[in-house]
Simulated scan of single mutants.
Amino acid sequence: MIEGIIEEIRTNGTFLVTTHENPDGDAVGSSLALAGYLRKLGKDVTIHFCDPVPDLYTFLPMSDEVVQDIPDNDFDVCFVLDVGEFRRAGKEIGNCRRIKKFINIDHHLTSDYFGCINYIDPKAAATGVLIHRIIKGAGDAVDYDTALCIYTAIITDTGSFRYSNANPEAFAIAGELVSTGINTWNIAEKLYESQPRQRLELLALALSTMTVSARGDYASITVTLDMYEKTGASAELTDGFVNYPRSIRGVEVSVFFREINPGLFKIGFRSKGKIDVSSIAAAFGGGGHRNAAGATMSGSLDEIKGKLFSHLEETL
């Protein structure tokens, strides 16, 4: 699989790199790492996200080169990273007829197989790990800028190496990346110690909605559109909110209800490990990993909560 990707890189000249909507640290980090690597090889590279880069990750090299509109030129290869489902790359990618072939690189258990090459490894801690494997498989060194991006991808998707996906490979790669000279405290400060005031104000409102099941085995919080209006916060500032209910002693599954349009909610699921939340998300048209998954549902908040909580009662 890696050899096939390296051959596509070697024999083609124009590349488009993209990822999923509302990109997280792994999506941004792995995309920028691959784009930077391709550019250093002399390739013509465009980075496209259907949503802007969250402010949290704008310290990464090339983050200011990400575009929301695909240029009119043709592309030999489009790398689609970390999407899980092809639709999450956005309609512009799905409708683009100037792309000759797609290569899918992902670590979601429920990933679609839509590429001419589908490099999918659910055991990888992050998609950034797969980008590292490709670079090393080509016999190339990882430079400072690429290390910064891959380290960010790994540290965010492993919850700072707290989650169960923080396997030996993730630690080994992180150690190698640190040897390039990246400053781990500087990265941590930008990711975790530089929050805008609006995020904490929004979190306070979200925590006030917290519910815990009668048995104490699942819990939820909610963010609605009016909360954004009250605080001046944006949706990107909700990253990590789903982990707060999971931190309660005894809770095995946390659920985060985030209103994205009137009557339309994005649902995030997190597990401590005993419960496979990807199967729960799949029951509602979503997917993801064993310990982290998501879905989108329409209806009133009460209706959606009723359906989900009933399903959780049966599952748990």
Rank of each mutant, 00 (worst) to 15 (best):
I182H: 01
T156F: 03
A89V: 03
H108S: 02
S111P: 03
L205T: 04
N22L: 11
G175T: 12
G286D: 10
A147C: 07
M62K: 08
Y228L: 13
I260K: 07
G94S: 13
F309K: 06
A147V: 05
P71N: 13
E85A: 14
L312E: 09
A141R: 14
A282M: 12
T296C: 10
A206H: 01
T146E: 13
A206R: 10
I2V: 15
I117Y: 11
A295D: 04
L316E: 01
N95S: 14
I103F: 00
V80L: 05
M1D: 13
P262C: 08
K101Y: 06
R10V: 08
S111E: 07
G273Y: 06
T19W: 10
D121G: 10
V66L: 04
I5Y: 07
G29S: 08
D24Q: 05
S310Y: 01
I267Y: 00
H20Q: 02
D82L: 01
I93K: 00
T315V: 15
R39H: 11
L312V: 09
L207H: 07
L16D: 03
H48G: 05
P61C: 11
I221Q: 03
A141S: 15
F171S: 08
V142I: 15
Y113P: 04
S278Y: 04
L203N: 02
I267K: 05
I135K: 03
I6V: 11
N118D: 12
S164E: 14
I70D: 02
E169Q: 12
E169G: 09
R88P: 05
Q68K: 11
L202G: 08
E313N: 15
A204V: 07
I248A: 05
A283T: 03
A166Y: 09
M62P: 00
T238E: 09
D239G: 14
I182M: 09
P23C: 00
T238F: 09
D217C: 14
E314K: 14
I117W: 11
G42V: 08
A219M: 12
G137S: 06
V255Y: 10
F284I: 02
C149H: 02
P168V: 05
I155F: 10
L316M: 15
V142L: 03
G286C: 10
G139I: 07
T18F: 01
I134M: 02
G285L: 06
S63L: 11
A141E: 15
N183R: 09
M1L: 14
T209P: 07
T222N: 01
K101L: 00
A166W: 08
D24E: 13
D217I: 14
G13R: 14
K40Q: 14
E193Q: 06
A281L: 02
A293H: 04
V223F: 05
G306N: 10
F269P: 04
